[in-house]
Design a protein around this nucleic acid. Structure first.
Length: 975
DNA sequence: TACAGATCTTA
DNA sequence: GTAAGATCTGTAC
């Protein structure tokens, strides 16, 4: 799509109803099949195509699509359950015509587009935006007022029946406001047919008048108190939230993920024969004649098409790819094709299918590889997996690639295999002797690239971020893709599930145990590199992985729709993959010298401490061994020991040691210091340099699927637990630096979880405090202890702070007592007081617990679920633990969702502002960037803007989100 | 060599 | 009291 191009978008669903009602009710073809709406639809569509072929009429389309509603529910039902709830079922004689009409569109050789979870209007909005951004013009063929909001420069609405074209001024004439205010107008007026509530007593005229005066809906709601008419004022005040909800319902989604990219809507000459064959089958004689005349085709010589009538539901194209038609898809028998039925059906199919490892192919030449890619083009979907020499994506080299295009139809492409037992001493050619032909890597990449980057071919992977990074180094950017690991994670992230690795998923969902990596390469010292394993063995292993991935996808993907989790997957998971991949790819610069200097200092100090410890103990022992330490402290020195741990050892944790130190014993204090320093040295200053690459940068790996709440985790190395609390620890952060000419910017959400608690539990005092910018811990202390906020005793504030955090963690008297070092009774009375002052908190926590028990899971504000099957356990400890986790998950998880949204938006926002800042790290509520010095002042506001508004427009928070951001030469100063 | 437990680091 | 990962020790195999 480019400047000068013109996109025609036909609102197919609206077309159907107009055609149906405009024509005599019972038009039937000879076998009794009702086809009135089909006839009307075809006539209208043909007229449109004819007109647009006539250059004299006006703009000529270069791109064309017919858009339909999908029959399933949409994300709007998740916002508001009554949305479109009072819609009547379509008439009995119209229903069988839906599938025929979609068939008609295909006979016209036009793209027929619908997507699960979205309305036709959202598709139209998204295509429109993309076309306009590409510099093209758009004609939306519809007269639906819901689409008026899209009218603007280059975009018009075309009412075909009245032959009227509507621009911005026409919208104003009709509704009294310009298109950009249509959303606000609709939000006020509501819509009885769609069950959008609006504000009672406000119709189109009043709404237009109010918007004229106040500008926007928000301004109007805020200043509603100024309205003179009493009833109108009261309604606007009482139904403000309802108006905001309505606004979200009528706002079209302009940024939905498109299964069919805009470029694929390019118009081409219709296939006359195909169209005529269809029209003959429908027995539309007049139209057949007209079409054959216009296209110069002899209708008599065209064979009538065989049209099979289905039950009126049409399956999404990608779900069917590579599959035999499912029995339920046929008319007459089986289940209707609801997403949940499809999901169940897929699960049964998968369980019944077997694996034949001998059937997998090894690709040894370019022509065979081409043939496999051709199969991928036919099916429109390919599962794929890379084999490499490392588990660390950021430095893994490609050894081979496997594919699956249909269940059981898979192959392995070896690229860099060497002879069995080959060593590093052999040069490339020698090492490859005897392994047989391999397609040269450059040739293979040239053949793979157009497929892996083809927007019309869906790539399915398991942990795609890994393959994405590996292929990026070969110059390929995988797109579009689905990730079975992430789908599984969204469906159920429970820790008890034992992860979302392919082997686990295969056993769980396919009942099949694939060859493990260990089986193939061995483990530990005897492990050999996969490149040196016999290719026939690797073929079985690798092709099986691709096969498993494809089968998993077929089972899991329909469940997303059935379980209403597409939003979480498509907005919070999938788009984050390339974002995180790039962060990992960039890495963060670390100063080796600083770490080395610290290591030296820590080594010296620990040696001194060890000497002192031995001297006091009267013997040399390992202070790092809790067993030996316990023996010395509580045996030899006879200090008062406390409780023992589960395994019968004396507890020697820091709390106990501090306690002993407070009693005046010398040794425990030294052990505590020794532990801190050895920890810092062993985990950070010694370990981090091993991760440095040639450029002095460290590349962590972010895991998207290893927490139950939606948080990310970081490993190899973990950069989310770099010390910050103690002075010595903090020094490690000074080693994380920006390169010459740049600085690090750290931006973190202030109190995000407490803010979310305030909103989700609806606690007026907390909300008020956050709105006013009052110190939240001072506020809580003042409420609890009945003292004024001014001149608050810092100790009281600290106590309140601990309790505030305890609440988020699902407080217990036991835990709070431990944390504060007070008695259980006193802790219990604090909690009681807290709940008395903020009764909403107890209600919210009890409600969340009850919800978790009833449905087995809880949800974040964005619909992410956390499952707690053990919350009904008969073991009181386990039950209590699950209850606390269930109370915490919506809060922690919503915060995680919000920063995910910020991250997904961040790169575009920076690019739009023409800034070159690079996002490097995420630490749960903090993002770290590398920013060119001269761009810092321009960059920080953009980062804050994105982060502080990341929840919008899906969620309306009652509290502001506040982000603090700072730039410095190293992470310690920036944080 | 593999794993569990203790301990420590972070939000 | 929530959510993680790394390292070390000690033990089982």
């Amino acid at each position: 799509m480019q400047k000068g191009d013109h996109l025609f978008l036909v609102d197919g669903s609206a077309y159907i109803f107009r055609a149906y009602h405009a024509l005599p009710p019972l038009t039937r073809k000879s076998d009794g099949l009702p086809v009135g709406a089909v006839a009307g639809f075809c006539n209208m569509l043909w007229k449109l195509v004819e007109e647009s072929r006539d250059t004299a009429v006006g703009t000529v389309p270069t791109h064309f699509a017919v858009i339909f509603d999908h029959s399933s529910t949409t994300f709007r039902n998740e916002l508001y359950e009554h949305y479109k709830a009072n819609r009547a079922e379509p008439p009995e004689d119209l229903r069988p015509q839906f599938a025929l009409i979609r068939e008609a569109v295909r006979a016209f050789d036009l793209p027929c587009i619908e997507q699960q979870g979205f309305e036709a209007d959202d598709l139209i909005a998204t295509y429109t935006r993309q076309a306009v951004e590409a510099g093209g013009d758009v004609t939306i063929v519809s007269s639906d007022k819901d689409l008026m909001q899209l009218v603007g420069p280059g975009v018009i609405l075309y009412d075909q029946m009245k032959d009227k074209r509507l621009g911005p001024e026409d919208v104003r004439e009709k509704f009294g406001v310009l298109p950009e205010k249509m959303i606000d107008l609709q939000a006020l007026v509501g819509d009885t047919s769609d069950n959008v509530p609006g504000v009672p007593g406000i119709g189109p005229k009043t709404a237009a008048e109010l918007l004229e005066t106040y500008g926007t809906l928000e301004a109007l709601l805020e200043r509603a108190g100024e309205i003179k008419q009493a009833k109108r004022r009261e309604n606007l005040q009482a139904f403000a939230e309802q108006a905001r909800l309505s606004k979200r319902l009528v706002t079209l989604e302009q940024d939905m993920p498109l299964d069919v990219p805009l470029a694929d809507l390019k118009l081409h000459e219709p296939d006359g024969e195909k169209l005529i064959a269809y029209l003959k089958a429908m027995e539309f004689t007049t139209l057949t004649r007209r079409v054959s005349a216009a296209l110069g085709t002899d209708a008599g010589s065209v064979e009538t098409a065989k049209i099979e009538v289905t039950d009126g539901e049409v399956r999404g194209p990608d779900l069917d790819a590579g599959a035999k038609p499912a029995p339920a898809a046929k008319s007459g028998g089986g289940l209707p094709l609801r997403p949940e039925n499809l999901a169940a059906e897929r699960r049964e199919q998968a369980a019944a299918e077997t694996f034949d490892l001998k059937a997998y192919a090894t690709i040894r030449d370019a022509a065979t590889l081409e043939a496999w890619m051709e199969r991928a083009r036919e099916t429109g979907i390919v599962a794929f997996d890379t084999e490499t020499d490392s588990l660390l994506a950021t430095n893994a080299n490609l050894i081979g690639v496997s594919f699956a295009v249909a269940p059981g139809e898979a192959a392995y492409l070896p690229l860099a295999h060497v002879a069995e037992g080959a060593t590093d001493l052999l040069s490339g050619e020698e090492a490859k002797a005897g392994v047989g032909a391999q397609v040269p890597v450059r040739d293979a990449i040239a053949i793979l690239k157009p497929v892996l980057e083809d927007p019309a071919i869906l790539k399915v992977g398991q942990n795609v971020k890994f393959d994405w990074l590996v292929m990026r180094r070969e110059g390929i950017t995988i797109h579009p893709f689905d990730d079975t690991m992430l789908i599984s994670y969204v469906l159920d992230a429970s820790a008890s599930l034992d992860g979302h690795g392919m082997d686990e998923l295969s056993e769980r969902f396919l009942g099949h145990k694939p060859i493990s990596y260990k089986d193939l390469c061995g483990s530990g010292k005897s492990a050999k590199p996969i490149a040196a394993v016999a290719i026939d063995k690797v073929t079985k292993y690798a092709a099986e992985d691709a096969d498993v991935t494809l089968r998993l996808w077929r089972v899991l993907k329909p469940r997303l729709v059935a379980e209403k989790l597409t939003h979480v997957y498509e907005r919070l998971e999938r788009p984050l993959v390339p974002v995180l991949a790039r962060m990992e790819e960039r890495g963060v610069k670390v100063d080796r010298q600083i770490l080395s200097r610290l290591s030296g200092r820590f080594a010296q100090r620990t040696a001194e401490l060890e000497a002192e410890i031995s001297k006091i103990a009267g013997e040399s022992f390992n202070p790092g061994s809790p067993k030996q330490l316990g023996d010395v402290l509580f045996g030899k020195l006879g200090l008062p020991g406390g409780k023992k741990t589960k395994s019968g050892q004396w507890a020697t944790d820091v709390r106990k040691l501090e306690e002993l130190a407070a009693e005046g014993h010398e040794l425990p204090r030294k052990v505590v210091d020794w532990r801190q320093l050895t920890k810092l040295k062993g985990t950070y200053t010694d370990a981090l340099p091993a991760h440095l690459d040639g450029e002095g940068r460290i590349h962590t790996s972010f895991s998207m699927a290893s927490t139950t709440t939606g948080r990310l985790s970081s490993s190899d190395p973990n950069l989310q637990n770099i010390p910050v609390r103690t002075r010595e620890g903090r020094e490690i952060r000074t080693a994380f630096v920006a390169p010459e000419g740049s600085r690090l910017v750290s931006a973190d959400y202030s109190q995000i979880e407490l803010r979310l608690l305030a909103h989700m539990a609806g606690i007026p005092q907390l909300i008020e405090a956050f709105r006013e910018g009052i110190d939240i811990h001072v506020m809580a202390a003042s409420e609890m202890f009945g003292v004024p906020r001014e001149g608050m005793d810092p100790a009281m504030r600290r106590r309140a702070k601990t309790i505030n955090f305890g609440i988020i963690y699902g407080i217990s008297a036991f835990g709070l007592a431990n944390q504060l070092g007070i008695g259980r009774e006193e802790a219990g009375s604090y909690i009681k007081r807290y709940f008395e002052r903020f009764p909403g908190i107890r209600d919210y926590m009890d409600g969340t617990k009850a919800l978790a028990k009833r449905q087995g899971y809880v949800e974040t504000l964005f619909g992410r679920r956390a499952h707690y099957p053990d919350i009904a356990s008969s073991n009181p400890q386990m039950r209590a633990f699950n209850e606390r986790a269930a109370m915490n998950a919506p809060i922690q998880g919503t915060a995680a969702d919000i920063i995910r949204r910020a991250m997904v938006r961040m790169e575009d926002a920076l690019a739009e502002a023409k800034l070159s800042a690079r996002m490097l790290l995420q630490v749960h509520d903090e993002l770290v960037f590398e920013v060119a010095e001269e761009e810092i002042d321009a960059t920080i506001p953009v980062i804050r803007e994105v982060m502080e508004n990341a929840e919008k427009p899906v969620v309306d928070l009652q509290v502001p989100l506040v982000v603090e951001a700072r730039a410095a030469g190293n992470w310690e100063e920036a944080h």
